[in-house]
Design a protein around this nucleic acid. Sequence first.
DNA 1: CATTTCACCTGGTGGC
DNA 2: TGCCACCAGGTGAAAT
Length: 284
Amino acid sequence: MPELPEVETIARGVHARVSGDRIVDVWLGRHHEPFKTAPAKMVKGLEGRVILAVRRIGKHIVCELGEAGSGRKGGLQRSVEPSAQWIVHLGMTGRLLVTTPDAPVAAHTHARLTLASGKELRFVDPRRFGRLEWRDLHRERPFAAPGAEPLSIGSAEFSALFRNRKLAIKAALLNQTLLAGVGNIYADESLFRAGLRPGRRAGRLTRAELERLRRSLGEVLHQAIELGGSSVSDYVDANGVRGFFQLEHRVYQRTGEPCRVCGTSVRRTVIAGRGTHFCPRCQR
DNA sequence: CATTTCACCTGGTGGC
DNA sequence: TGCCACCAGGTGAAAT
């Protein structure tokens, strides 16, 4: 389940391998569901474009695209302003892979972008919770996440997010309009590291507890990025390589196993419809 | 408006 | 071996 660290890892990997390359051919699958932009419009909007950069915003991967038919491949594109964006949301099971053209096409491949270098950029998503969108920056605003970036938010702004809120802190962490990029794994893991019960009402947390949470969240996200993300199901980065942060999980999917700090059995409940894991002794 | 619930999907799992 | 109910969870729409 790609969350901020997994999406960051993928965006970096894709950027390293395709920036400066040109999209010469686009194939889209027949399913309409994964596309926020009409397929014909997306194909036309992508073909001929140069990929200037690939970056992460929240859980979204944003490919900045240069004008079709202008410039050339490589460093010549340095100062070019993007005129369009290709936005990829991986949903639950989405993958964005850079492959050679002869690599076998995985089941549930919904998009294949052939690049001038011969590489292919492929979007694969068995459950089709992912979304693809194309934006013309001459007519539309650049993509922006509604929520704040957890890696750069300050303590005052962070505590303001939760002021007067009655919902569980875990549910608040998952709300993408408050914070962009936190999903089930890092919500549970940051609450454990902050020593906070996931069911606590967000508005009832003290200033000190919120600051602990902000720091824990930042630390856990940074560590996970360093380890290439968590591979809990079939997550792989742009090169098909698994991450290692799942080995550092303290509570997520460890129901019944001993807490790594105090040995108490890790408990599972459901909050906001999600499996929620916590140590009843370490988290208050 | 704030919050909660549920549908959308498929693959993997465990029970029988 | 096969069948099937059930679970996983990011998101957005619908309900409360």
